[in-house]
């Protein structure tokens, strides 16, 4: 995560709330600057929770809320945080939010929280979270930080959903639990295993790069 350098602070003076630059903050991470396939952050949970659409959706929502809010809060107090302890401060703010989301899921979406198990807690070490805080929220005002967090959360969520569509459809012949391929369809075991997610994400990266023309040597 620290391979990225701190991005240039965005000039705020004449910028309306949903001006061009701010909209870019939301839309860029969806494709050209996607946290999963381009920045290669937050892979762990993208592999682990994408067997079915439903938990993937909850995970995506949870991550978006947490990344957005913690970017916002850190950005609010960015001038108060002593530099020497900033990582611990970031972690503590993020951890508090993660625990709150975890407790909310346990109280109101128990089945989902059982399926996601420790992966909700592990949002804390999801590199997207600390990556965005460190690279963006520490140097920008609260509003753009919030948008940047939400944009990156959504970009992550998009990859999660694409992966989950393939894995649930091919692995169990259903989407969101509804059988689509009929009972005669025999699920593809590879798609159900976490290893199958590696292949799907590998192919998604391939497709995206073939389209965008991005090369890595």
């Amino acid at each position: 995560m620290s391979t990225e350098s701190i991005e240039q602070p965005i000039k705020q003076k004449s910028e309306p709330l949903f001006g061009k630059k701010n909209r870019k903050l939301l839309s860029n991470p969806l494709d050209a600057d996607n946290p999963v396939t381009v920045q290669i952050l937050g892979i762990c949970s993208a592999l682990a929770v994408t067997v079915q659409m439903k938990p993937a959706l909850f995970m995506a929502v949870g991550v978006t809320i947490i990344v957005g809010l913690s970017s916002f809060i850190i950005s609010l107090m960015r001038n108060l945080i002593p530099n020497r302890v900033r990582i611990i401060v970031q972690l503590m703010v993020a951890a508090t939010l993660v625990v709150i989301i975890d407790q909310l899921f346990k109280a109101y979406a128990y089945d989902i929280s059982k399926q996601l198990s420790v992966y909700i807690s592990l949002i804390l070490t999801n590199c997207i979270l600390l990556g965005r805080i460190e690279a963006f929220a520490m140097g920008n005002k609260p509003w753009p930080s919030l948008l940047d967090g939400i944009g990156n959360g959504a970009g992550y969520g998009a990859i999660l959903m694409i992966t989950a569509v393939f894995r649930e459809l091919l692995g169990s012949g259903s989407l969101f639990g509804y059988k689509l391929l009929g009972s005669s369809y025999i699920g593809n075991g590879v798609m159900i295993l976490p290893a199958g997610a590696c292949f799907v994400i590998g192919l998604v990266v391939w497709m995206q790069r073939a389209r965008n023309g991005y090369r890595e040597e």
């Binding site: 396939t37 290669i40 290893a195 199958g196 997610a197 590696c198 292949f199 994400i201 590998g202 192919l203 990266v205 391939w206 790069r209 073939a210 991005y214 090369r215 890595e216 040597e217």
Partner: peptide, 14 residues
């Protein structure tokens, strides 16, 4: 070419 780097790494890990 588009698979080089991260793409092929994912498949390797799988």
């Amino acid at each position: 070419a588009p698979l080089r780097g991260v793409g092929i790494t994912f498949i390797l890990i799988g």
